[in-house]
Design a protein around this nucleic acid. Sequence first.
DNA 1: TTCATTGGTAAGTCGTAGCTTACCGTTCGT
DNA 2: ACGAACGGTAAGCTACGACTTACCAATGAA
Lengths: 107, 107
Amino acid sequence: MGTYQTGEGWDALGDPTRRAIVECLAERPRAVGELAELLPISRPAVSQHLKVLKDAGLVEDRAAGTRRVYRLNPAGVAALRDQLDTFWRRALDGFQDVVEEPNEEKS
Amino acid sequence: MGTYQTGEGWDALGDPTRRAIVECLAERPRAVGELAELLPISRPAVSQHLKVLKDAGLVEDRAAGTRRVYRLNPAGVAALRDQLDTFWRRALDGFQDVVEEPNEEKS
DNA sequence: TTCATTGGTAAGTCGTAGCTTACCGTTCGT
DNA sequence: ACGAACGGTAAGCTACGACTTACCAATGAA
């Protein structure tokens, strides 16, 4: 958890295909070939996306015979959720307070 | 809220510079030129990023004289947070349940 | 009205992310 | 041991996104 840069997670979810993969894995764990069948891209492409997601700490993989089963990593997802939560609270803070901002702090 | 595709929000936050802008705006509302001073990019670049963020429903703008003050839109942030929450819950669901997946549903 | 300030838009360049095909390693079945 | 299935990696191509400079519109002050 502390190993991953949270920025990596956002970059990972910035791609529509990777979001689709995450949605598939949210349903249930899947093998690489399985994901490739569900998506309109080749299997190597799926592998590359999974690598990005894994580096970001959003998914985990498990060897099962010749297959490799991927599943969501709740901790990684939670990390992003927490950061988003922070933004949300700060936004609400500045919301009620700032109605007028006539003075500039320039120079 | 219903107007925006949630995917737009993820795409918007997929860029590091836009995440930096969001962080700045989470602190407090800012004008375009203000953001440009804080960031290592030109003012037009900031404008383009703000357009993306606005289309995604993550920020709102308000005219203040010749300036244009941008601030976070809590609703947009909350939308992403909810979606992330859904993924998180589903991930936990499949976590305890799936230990073995011997059968394939292929063909 | 005229000038200065602020910000959005247009046009163009450059880097990189995502995709493909081809190839190789690994694991299981016969 | 041999062959098939599955998946990761390499190399290369293409497209799109982020940034720049230049220009224009709008607002406020003199």
